[in-house]
Amino acid sequence: MSNTRTPLYKVGQIKKHFPVLGGVLRRTKGYVKALDGVDLEVFRGETISVIGESGCGKTTLGRMLALLDKPTGGELSFDFGQGLQDVTSLRGADQMRFRKKVQMIFQDPYTSFNPRQRVGAAMDEVLRVHGVKDEAERSARILEACEMVNIRPEYLQRYPHEFSGGQRQRLAIARCLATKPELIIADEIVSALDVSIQAQIVNLLLKIQKETGLSFIFVTHDVAVARYVGHRVAVMYLGNVVEILPADSLPEAAEHPYTIALLSAVPSMNPTAKDQRVALQGEVPSPIDMPKGCAFSTRCPSVMDICRTERPVLKISNISKGDHQVACHLNKGAK
């Protein structure tokens, strides 16, 4: 079904390798392969949750999509309205046009606002940068955004330290919305908040998504929140997307051994969940010297000979078909 729609944002074999320097001469000794060939398509009005453990590259992927870092290789193309267009080579005004369409929200709401600037002024600045010259229009947009996130207009005269963490995160969301973006990349935006506040933000995101039809990329380490927020969930392990599947089909439809292990490690209130636990041995290998074949082969409970030599690519699942893709040699005969 995804083949008939055209994506808003298409990521093709994106790579990001950070050099590791060593020795007296600071020569490049090797590379940390933070992203090693990720494919992803984001459709209009869709929320994709990206999950994975620390160091899997989920934050790097988010930054890459917002063009905050330059990819080492691969393609990024965005649909401005006239079909997909490469964005990695955009400069100047064209790049600004892209930044207006694709906004990012960060984890720490304490550091994403200037402590010496009133929050209203901070939001106004963003709009000015993006070429909204009319002052009346700027304030109208800011008020509209604040209403959407339940921040009272008089609060705009306050400084960031006068807000709680949850309010500040709502302000960060409002600042994003004011530019009228088409895609919002949210990187761990609820992880620093207490659970009751986290629920406020999650409900708010879902409301905004329903009302505006925006696309979201929701990067998180919390599997249950990812499933709750997203339409689709992309599971990352060591710089690769190992499985993408509809969120509703989780946890039952998960096929990749890593996804299954990750899901079973999530503590659950459901007493039966304990019995189906798959305990993963060992830890994530260093991304500097990655295993030769499948990155997960060193910890996989169902590892086969082929896994150690050949890297599996993302293919449509043989079992559930459709929107479900998995990168695993167990997914035999898939195209």
């Binding site: 009751s196 999650v202 659950s268």
Partner: peptide, 20 residues
């Protein structure tokens, strides 16, 4: 306020107004 892995996505998460 915390979704479980088998939470119903049509049920809104419960929030607590205000903060501690």
């Amino acid at each position: 306020s915390v979704p479980d892995l088998d939470a119903d996505k049509n049920v809104e998460l419960q929030t607590v107004d205000g903060q501690t």
